[in-house]
């Protein structure tokens, strides 16, 4: 449904997006995960035609965006990160206006508006001016406006940013519902949990580049199939080479106060810990857990996603 090839966007010296390539399959959720400033919104802006790419191409449903932007835009539903709605209009008036832009009229428009208002849980507040809505309600309406014309591909740019848990759950459920109906979703977020639980495929971005991509299990596999060991203590006197000799242990991070290791499948975590104590480490805290995307991001970039 969506094919992005070597997409690049420069603003003078700054390269915001650097040679991005990925493919989102029809009826799936493709996630772009990365910290603020990673280039996610710039990528979305190029796909929906708001920004002209410096190079590269975008194909939606087989149509080249550069060759026929109007045809591509007809297939797109865009939900921007910033809530972009008319505050003086009611929810239903906002939806009617947006539906009218896409050519919906009369009974078809009315029934589509009612359906969407029910879907996002705003049916009982549909005639109130939007300016009295809470942030979460506005977010839900923002989402509904991107769906009013029944697009084949929906671009969701951080749709749950800054809202309460209940509204977040509603939005995530709406995303699952539209995907169940065959819609393709490109979903950007910096929330690991969302990406991990929602997306079928994921690309991890930083500084305009994709660092890794694949299904969640494929990405986790890049960390290795074992347990993650995180140690806190005083590691100054000990050379990292000392611990690297311990069997079944792979060093991911080493600093004065913190060290992270992957204990490979088959190796005993207890034996590894004994060996670490034996190497003269002064430990204050030990954590053992299954690796997640945060760990992968840390491995790929050397810093945490929330930094």
């Amino acid at each position: 449904m969506l094919r992005v090839e070597h997409l690049t966007k420069s603003f003078g010296e700054l390269i915001a997006v650097d040679g991005l390539s990925f493919t989102a399959e029809a009826g799936k959720i493709f996630g772009l995960l990365g910290p603020n400033g990673a280039g996610k919104t710039t990528t979305i802006s190029m796909i929906c035609g708001l920004l002209r790419p410096s190079s590269g191409s975008v194909h939606v449903d087989g149509i080249d965006l550069g060759a026929d932007p109007i045809a591509v835009k007809r297939r797109l539903g865009v939900v921007p990160q910033e809530i972009a709605i008319y505050e003086d209009l009611s929810a239903v008036e906002n939806l009617r206006f947006w539906g009218g832009i896409y050519g919906l009229r009369g009974a078809a428009l009315r029934s589509r508006c009612e359906e969407l208002l029910r879907l996002v849980g705003l049916a009982d507040r549909s005639t109130e001016p939007v300016r009295v809505f809470s942030g979460g309600m506005k977010r839900r309406l923002n989402l509904a406006m991107g769906l009013v014309h029944g697009p084949k591909l929906v671009l969701l740019d951080e749709p749950t940013a800054g809202i309460d848990p209940q509204a977040r759950l509603n939005i995530l459920q709406v995303v699952r519902d539209i995907v169940a109906e065959g819609t393709t979703v490109l979903y950007t977020t910096h929330y690991l949990e969302e990406a991990e639980h929602l997306c079928d495929e994921l690309a991890i971005m930083d500084h305009g580049k994709i660092l890794a991509q694949g299904s969640i299990s494929e990405l986790k596999a890049q960390l290795g199939d074992g347990s993650l060991l995180t140690l806190q203590g005083d590691f100054d006197p000990v050379q990292p080479e000392k611990v690297s000799a311990i069997g079944g242990l792979r060093t991911l991070e080493w600093s004065a106060e913190r060290a992270r290791f992957m204990v490979e499948r088959g190796a005993s975590v207890g034996t590894v810990l004994e060996d670490l104590y034996g190497s003269g480490l002064h430990l204050r805290d030990v954590q053992i857990k299954e690796p997640n995307l945060e760990d992968l991001f840390l491995k790929l970039t050397g810093r945490e996603l929330r930094d």
Binding site: I70, K73, E82, A84, I85, Y102
Partner: peptide
């Protein structure tokens, strides 16, 4: 400021 003008630009309009 609201972004509605930019959002219009994502619609199939020149």
């Amino acid at each position: 400021q609201l972004g509605t003008l930019q959002r219009l630009a994502t619609a199939p309009l020149r």
